Amino acid sequence: MVVTSGCGALFYPRLPTVHNASTEELVGDWTGPDGAKVILERDGRAEVRDLGGEDWAFDRGWGLSGTGTWQLIEGASGETIGGAPAVQISITNVTGQIQRPPRSIDKWTTAPYSPIGEYTWKFGMERTKEGLQPYYLAGDPDSPNLYHLKRT
């Protein structure tokens, strides 16, 4: 007898994690998918421009701009990617919202999303030959797409 499950720890992909990142490595200007911009200031302030939502929210095709705060948070099972430390960006002052046109990969994109008052991302981190790269997950958690930020 074979037992299967659509959602289970054994079926989730293994995601890259970093346990020794410093806030100094993260301070600066970053670009994301579809031309999004992320600015992480030394004093904990953050700004995003046209950054799409995480997980299922990304499939709805919206992005937002605004200001708020960022911090490096300790991970815990179920709270961050792989239980590793994460970059948390909380936008509390939304200054704009976009709806990208549907793309062929966005099967679940719906009508424009209702206005968003605030939003929080939790970015995992990966070390590559380019250095530390924060990323967030988009789409189905069983088969997510990783969207990396690249330093500009």
Results as ranks from 00 to 15, higher is better:
109 T>W: 00
28 G>S: 01
2 V>A: 09
135 Y>F: 14
114 S>Q: 13
117 G>N: 11
131 G>E: 04
102 P>M: 05
34 D>M: 12
48 V>Y: 08
12 Y>N: 12
35 G>A: 03
79 E>N: 13
50 D>Q: 09
119 Y>W: 13
107 K>M: 10
32 G>M: 01
14 R>C: 01
84 A>C: 09
132 L>R: 03
134 P>G: 07
109 T>M: 14
146 L>S: 13
27 V>D: 02
11 F>D: 06
105 I>D: 15
43 D>Q: 13
63 G>K: 02
19 H>R: 14
73 I>L: 00
36 A>W: 06
17 T>N: 07
46 A>D: 04
131 G>K: 06
114 S>C: 09
54 E>L: 10
24 E>D: 15
66 G>E: 08
50 D>Y: 04
69 T>G: 05
96 G>I: 03
137 L>K: 07
45 R>T: 11
43 D>S: 15
45 R>C: 00
122 K>G: 02
45 R>E: 03
2 V>W: 04
73 I>F: 02
2 V>S: 11
104 S>L: 12
31 T>F: 09
127 R>L: 08
141 P>Q: 03
41 E>P: 00
146 L>E: 12
11 F>H: 00
127 R>Y: 03
4 T>N: 14
55 D>G: 11
137 L>H: 00
12 Y>S: 03
29 D>H: 14
130 E>H: 09
10 L>D: 15
27 V>I: 12
133 Q>C: 11
82 G>V: 11
8 G>I: 08
42 R>P: 04
105 I>Q: 10
145 N>V: 08
88 Q>R: 14
83 G>S: 09
42 R>M: 03
109 T>L: 10
53 G>A: 12
93 N>W: 02
77 S>A: 14
10 L>M: 11
112 P>M: 07
87 V>T: 07
122 K>V: 05
70 W>A: 08
6 G>F: 12
68 G>V: 03
61 G>W: 07
123 F>C: 04
1 M>P: 10
1 M>R: 08
141 P>K: 03
115 P>I: 09
126 E>N: 06
4 T>I: 15
152 T>D: 13
5 S>T: 15
74 E>N: 11
110 T>S: 09
57 A>T: 07
34 D>G: 01
106 D>A: 07
126 E>Q: 13
132 L>Y: 10
118 E>K: 07
106 D>Q: 15
14 R>G: 08
144 P>D: 09
116 I>K: 12
30 W>G: 01
3 V>K: 10
72 L>W: 08
6 G>L: 14
116 I>Y: 10
99 Q>T: 13
132 L>D: 04
48 V>D: 05
36 A>I: 07
2 V>D: 07
69 T>V: 12
66 G>D: 10
108 W>I: 01
121 W>N: 00
123 F>N: 06
145 N>T: 13
16 P>S: 05
8 G>F: 14
27 V>R: 09
2 V>K: 02
100 R>I: 06
103 R>Y: 03
88 Q>Y: 03
66 G>M: 10
